[in-house]
Nucleic acid binder design. Structure first.
Lengths: 303, 303
DNA sequence: TGAATAGTGTCTTTAAGACACTATCTT
DNA sequence: AAGATAGTGTCTTAAAGACACTATTCA
């Protein structure tokens, strides 16, 4: 085609333009990728016949270098120029915490100017869900340690103000992460402002203990996404082992949503997403339950 | 605190570490920001008493330089290192097409390695919605022209295959953009593959006419997001003028969803999001209708 | 036997969908 | 009066929520 002949305002063809293109002309930011990996595990069993409570966990690594040395961060790091964002996320999970082959979706890209004291860094965050029982977490790369932290999440304050031409909606969310020795905490304030047509969202960190960078944002944003998506997609199954009871599945929903659900209704809702197997649980101190598995015929695959 | 005293494996404090940190150590990608700006406008009026049909439009700029010179792209460009991603998006809309003060949300970040022939570029895309009637679009910056294109969108093919351990879901979406002189088109294939726990999504461009870079992806992805979010959020109101009839509002929903809705049901659904005013339309060739405005007391502000 | 969980049936409430009908303006 | 849109009432269907009940295992 005539495409090769087109010349720009400097009179250059595309080939000539690309040959003289100077990649160092603009200052560039670094791009990092951080992954929020959730799992759900059994808590302590209080009584031989009582079922253990499920706990929502998030994987954090202890930073072995400045900045934020000795505090906990999401696994991640800089993207290389010869790999895609997705590849970077998978590579880093493998390197830093020895995790591979899991569900992953892009979450949000954080682009504030002073996120990182080293240099300008754009951070693309991913959310991952996994059944941790099969995984062998192992700290590697620049991390000194890797640990699962139990997630607790509560809305501390919610306020709505009318202002001229619109309104401001503010809330404060407190995330507490409990690890083996450390308890981390982040309080995030979100201000959503509507003035006429323009809606702006500002997040700020009100309090932060032991969480590196702006990772408290990522955790609270990811939690909200998870809570929303669990209702209309199948992503929760990524947290389950191959065979599970319906009560276990319900517990996973409950710990994520932070509220109790009614058994009969829950079962009706998930009925066509699961298939009954002929396996049952045993020696549980009470009536055994049937084991189910994900119904792969149910092709629910929306975003 | 003792934080200042912590030393890394090289024996450096944070201050010493930051002073010696070499920003040129890693190769960095460029980061660009691209904005998908939608609006809805009246189509031609066929008959003095018939209401005009609404059309969904997207704003494109004609590139004035390589690569993709003379083809149409989303307004956007490189982010500066001293501005946030959001600021870059607003700045570029102002510079390239003279648009400001509109609704905007982050869409997705595209990170394939060879998206751009110049150099490695990460592209963070935003979606904007506006009532174009008040706007004066004007090409600026590196753009030769800026035009609204009418969007048509259809699913050409949908296929689901079972494979061992999971399934593959493929579809093909055709987006057609009609401008004053040019008609652009993009056919996007999406392959969603589930094998065990791992779900991967691959998009590829099957056909592309006149759309620069991978912007056909952005358009189809944004359209899907818009169609989803319109059902459970208020974002559609960003496309409306201050005063509108319920029929107009319904037409906006219809053109975005690509299907007709029943009037009585639609009105019930939006009833508490709008407020009746004492204004009415006039000289329409038929019964006048009441004008409504957005109910700002209805604080529906979810993501 | 009883403590605990497993599993089911049915009534109520709410939302979505379908459709028919009446009202009112302009040429 | 005709043609067009504006606006409302009501029946049906489907989903969500509440609650009560029966069933089964094992120490």
């Amino acid at each position: 085609m005539a495409k090769e002949e087109l010349r720009n305002t400097d009179g250059l063809t595309e080939r000539e333009f690309l040959d003289q293109y100077d990649v160092s002309l603009y200052k560039r930011p670094s791009v990092s990728v951080d992954t929020l990996l959730f799992t759900v595990v059994d808590g302590p069993q209080l009584n031989y016949r009582k079922l253990p409570q499920k706990e929502l966990k998030v994987l954090m690594v202890k930073r072995g270098n400045h900045p934020y040395i000795d505090t906990w961060a999401l696994p991640g790091g800089f993207m290389f120029v010869d790999e895609s964002l997705d590849q970077a996320a998978y590579r880093q999970l493998k390197e830093e915490v020895n995790v591979s082959d899991i569900y992953m979706e892009q979450l949000y890209t954080w682009g504030n100017v002073h996120r990182d004291p080293r240099t300008r860094v754009i951070s693309c965050s991913y959310m991952s869900l996994a059944d941790s029982s099969q995984m062998e977490i192992k700290a590697g790369g620049g991390a000194w340690d890797a640990q699962w932290f139990t997630v607790n999440y509560e809305t501390e304050e919610e306020r709505k103000k009318k202002i001229s031409g619109g309104y401001v909606f503010e809330n404060q969310i407190k995330v507490t992460l409990s690890g083996r020795e450390d308890t981390l905490c982040g309080v995030i304030g979100t201000e959503k402002r509507v003035v006429g047509k323009t809606k702006t969202v500002k997040r700020h960190i009100i309090k932060e203990e032991g969480i590196a960078f702006d990772h408290a944002f990522v955790i609270s944003y990811g939690l909200e996404r998870l809570r929303n998506k669990i209702a209309y997609t199948d992503i929760a199954f990524n947290l389950m082992p191959e065979y599970f009871t319906l009560t276990e599945l319900q517990q996973v929903y409950e710990v994520i949503l932070g509220k109790e659900l009614l058994k009969a209704n829950f079962r009706r809702k998930v009925a066509d997403r699961v298939v009954e197997t002929d396996r049952v649980t045993k020696n549980e101190g009470h009536r055994p339950s049937k084991l189910y598995t994900l119904n792969t015929n149910w092709g629910c695959f929306e975003e």
